[in-house]
Amino acid sequence: MTDDLIQPEATGDEIAFEGALRPGSLAEFVGQPKVRGQLEVLLRAAALQDRSPDHILLAGPPGLGKTTLAMIIGTETGRAVRLSSGPAIQHAGDLAAVLSALTPGDVLFVDEIHRMARSAEEMLYLAMEDFRIDIMVGKGAGATSIPLELAPFTLVAATTRSGMLPSPLRDRFGFTAHLEFYDPADLERVLHRSASLLGVPLPDEAIVELARRSRGTPRIANRLLRRVRDWLLVHPGSGELEGVREALRLYDVDEAGLDRLDRAVLHTIAHRFRGGPVGLSTLAASVGEEADTIEAVVEPYLVREGLLARTPRGRIATPEGLAHAGVVVHPTLDERL
């Protein structure tokens, strides 16, 4: 996996850092107004009826606040939040252990649910619908199924790849929230709040510069703010706006918010493959990165910014992407579609 500054994979100390900045309620949560409104109605209706909220699926690119919203759901309902993840549940027995430990009303948060083992997914169908699981005892002809009743709970699941979830699982969620990339104005609000909490006094023009280069992602915005804070501590008196630009230059974040891997992908398509099309696996091998990282982390932003396009024949650099990669003469986009 890449270790580039702005890639949204969280490490241990970064999780602690992000946790310190994490809002504790829907009222404090910045951005995603449609999702916030939908969740507010869902949670208030459940409270008025004195029941657990429906199961909730949070879908969207990394770093947009899925984990934060899961924690807020627990806070807003006054329930304990139990944490797990898809990669940690590789057998039905793993899921059975998690579910049997729940108490009535608990919120179970499963991150990266699309990476859960298929056998566990099939067990989860019954658990979500009837709050019951069947435990198989014995083998062969003597095997028997023992039903185990579960305490009523609310499953909050997060995924960056909702298309990988089987339909029977998706259909059992009462509400699916689709999180979108943030616009610069919302990112500026996120950065003003974070800068205040961190004690980093930045003028408005410095906040605007940071927001513009944060790829529409709050997690990235907070990480860049952290690096800017370090720069200003090491280089006092360098001027806040110039300090922001120098820090981002040092950490390889360009004017468009692209980092080393983003530029490597664009440069490879533009120069080595003459603008494309090129297949994902070939592209991943060419830049020395996992195909999943390129597809889930790099491509969404490049496509959103109009620098990259996906076609039936493979990935191609758009005219804007070719220009960003320094290609002056190139075929038109239509010729490569």
Results as ranks from 00 to 15, higher is better:
T77N: 10
T77S: 15
G78Y: 12
R79N: 09
A80C: 00
A80M: 02
V81K: 03
R82F: 02
L83F: 06
L83I: 03
S84P: 10
S84H: 09
S85N: 13
S85K: 11
G86Q: 09
G86C: 11
G86F: 08
A88E: 14
I89W: 08
I89P: 12
Q90V: 14
Q90P: 10
Q90D: 13
H91E: 09
H91Y: 10
H91K: 14
H91I: 00
A92Q: 13
G93K: 15
D94H: 15
D94G: 06
L95F: 07
A96V: 03
A96G: 08
A96N: 02
A96E: 14
A97Q: 14
A97T: 15
V98N: 01
L99R: 09
S100H: 03
S100Q: 15
A101F: 06
A101M: 09
L102W: 04
T103R: 12
T103Q: 13
P104I: 12
G105L: 08
G105N: 09
G105T: 05
D106L: 03
D106W: 08
V107W: 06
V107D: 08
V107I: 15
L108F: 10
L108G: 13
F109D: 09
F109M: 11
F109L: 14
V110W: 05
V110A: 10
V110T: 09
E112M: 10
E112C: 11
E112Q: 14
E112K: 08
E112F: 10
H114N: 12
M116P: 09
M116Y: 10
A117M: 06
A117T: 06
R118F: 02
R118P: 01
R118Y: 03
R118W: 02
A120N: 08
A120W: 04
E121N: 05
E122H: 02
M123F: 01
Y125H: 07
Y125M: 00
L126A: 12
L126K: 01
A127E: 00
A127Y: 01
A127D: 02
A127L: 03
A127T: 02
M128Q: 04
M128P: 07
M128A: 09
E129Y: 01
D130E: 15
D130W: 01
F131G: 13
R132K: 13
R132V: 07
D134C: 01
D134T: 01
D134G: 07
D134I: 01
D134A: 12
D134R: 01
D134F: 02
M136V: 15
M136S: 13
V137A: 05
V137S: 00
V137K: 05
G138I: 08
K139C: 03
K139M: 11
K139L: 12
G140S: 04
G140C: 02
G140L: 07
